[in-house]
Design a protein around this nucleic acid. Structure first.
Length: 158
DNA sequence: AAGAAGATTCGCT
DNA sequence: GCGAATCTTCTTA
């Protein structure tokens, strides 16, 4: 998995300017889904990470496909395993995540939830976030070193 | 009230 | 590599 943190007081965060109709689910308290449409075409999913009324979330940028491969291939219209969930918009399409999922509690929803993955040794790398211009120097992107299912061209140092 | 930019992806060159 | 698709927000008039 690959993700990026968007913190309280972070210029690059959608919550930086306060609560709006679009980012309202960033303020629901931890472990809620914040889903938004980007460039009118793709969806991105975040997991909220702070107490209620504090706008912060973690953007899921890529996943390693494990289960439900035929269904995800059908939704994506792509055969390549590597391209199924590589990128925030792509993984939303593969998992059928859209605005209906916005605001769901990941602890109590039967639509969208988190599960523990395979137990294995992982090295977590840090790098600057991808695709932003504000606060672009901050190393708030987290990824599994050596994993083949990462977005972005650059896999920087751990 | 209108226009530009954005946590993107896809298709064409 | 470049541009289109097309929605929300922020800036400018």
């Amino acid at each position: 998995m690959e993700c990026e943190a968007y913190l309280h007081g972070d210029e690059a965060s959608h919550a930086y300017g306060g609560k709006t109709p679009r980012n309202a689910s960033m303020f629901l308290g931890p472990f809620h889904a914040y889903v938004y449409k980007i460039y009118g075409t793709s969806f991105c999913v975040n997991v909220t990470s702070e107490a209620p009324d504090v706008g912060a979330a973690v953007l899921v940028r890529a996943l390693e496909p494990v289960d439900g491969l035929p269904l995800m291939r059908r939704r994506r219209g792509v055969d390549s395993l590597r391209e199924l969930c590589r990128g925030p918009g792509r993984l939303c399409q593969a998992l059928a995540i859209d605005l209906r999922c916005n605001g769901l509690s990941l602890l109590s929803s039967s639509e969208l939830w988190l599960e523990a993955g395979e137990a294995r040794k992982r090295r977590i790398g840090l790098s600057p976030r991808i695709g932003i211009s504000q606060a672009a120097h901050r190393r708030l992107r987290y990824y599994e070193v050596g994993n083949d299912f990462l977005s972005g061209a650059r896999h920087l140092s751990p």
